[in-house]
Nucleic acid binder design. Structure first.
Lengths: 189, 189
DNA sequence: TGTATTTTTTGATATAGATTAAAGTTTAGG
DNA sequence: CCTAAACTTTAATCTATATCAAAAAATACA
């Protein structure tokens, strides 16, 4: 798993052997069973996770108890309740294992410590933020301009792995439509 | 207007007199009449704007020609079609003056140049990205979990200036509801 | 200052997609 | 394997909010 993370980091920034060792030393392994929660509403998100195996789901819950999924992180992706991670405030987002998962995590404290001791880490974080921003804005645009059919078609086109790998319930939550509507779309589109 | 920008920058980062001068030298003034467009669909967003006076609106348009507003920037705020600014690709977002406006702008090139020559600018950009991310995620959450009434109430609570200062058409576009629905909400809520 | 244009309000109707309900189908653990 | 639980499909109904239409009010400008 550390090898996966090494590849990920080397792909984004240029660091020395020593710096890489320092960075990796802050990441600890963690295994989760399916459906286990990492962050619950109101908790502060104090860790960022790297998915070695499995899938993490980040989602909101509205007053009626219905959830809306913001993001799925599969193998070799980072995930965190980023708003809470940034602001230090309690999280409106939950993190849950959508499958049995094996992760590496780094604490908020160590993450910010790295910003101070590894100059390139600032650039790593910048790219991370940029990517997260672009991703979220695309999601926002999708919800503001597309109907159920268009959202489903786009997902099928751009990220079919979500549809292939996860149960309808979670796909529907990601598209913010009901399971029944998704089921009908699958048989028609 | 340069004074406003100076205050804004000093509020976010610590820079020397000289560095500040360098930074300011890259910003040029620009006046816009109401409704004038700064970035049109498909153009690349090559500038970031600081609003000295007036208001900028950033929005998407869907296939039916209906627009959805992502952000309003009033006095002493920055605004840009950030996805395009980050990726360098053509913009899905438009920028328009919602009122007669006086701006300062910096080009993408100069902005990135500053990242190289003023060490603190990286931190300035990081805070900018963090704020933009937090803001967008809150918008996303709002659209995913709130109905028209809830969205209106929250806006009234958290950002009443938008309702007070801008016409219904733009407020409705910001909430992603029809003008008629907004009008009915205003008379009831 | 009066007329044209734009914005807001109000009412009637339409619709996408939610909800409810129940029958099939798949999956996982004992 | 077998059975209980979880998931998916299908159909009928409901609802929030859009759309359409037209009057009323506000604003701009000639």
């Amino acid at each position: 798993m550390y090898e996966q993370l090494t590849d990920y980091i080397n792909d984004k920034i240029k660091v020395s052997e020593d710096e890489l060792k320092t960075i990796l030393s802050f990441f600890k392994p963690l295994k989760l069973r399916k459906n286990e929660l990492l962050v619950t509403y109101g908790q502060t998100s104090e860790r960022t996770f790297f998915v070695g195996k499995g899938c993490l789901r980040i989602f909101f819950i509205n007053e009626d108890g219905q959830d809306a999924t913001r993001y799925f992180a599969f193998e070799n992706q980072f995930a965190t309740a980023l708003v809470s991670f940034i602001t230090g405030g309690p999280s409106d987002e939950f993190i849950q294992a959508a499958e049995h998962s094996e992760l590496l995590y780094i604490t908020h404290r160590d993450f910010y410590h790295l910003l101070e001791i590894v100059p390139q880490w600032e650039s790593f974080y910048r790219h991370y933020l940029e990517k997260a921003y672009v991703n979220n804005t695309k999601r926002l645009m999708s919800f503001l301009t597309q109907d159920a059919t268009e959202k489903y078609r786009q997902l099928l086109d751009e990220n079919p792995v979500i549809i292939r790998r996860l149960p309808n319930k979670l796909v529907a939550s990601y598209l913010n439509i009901s399971q029944e509507t998704l089921s009908r779309l699958k048989s028609k589109v």
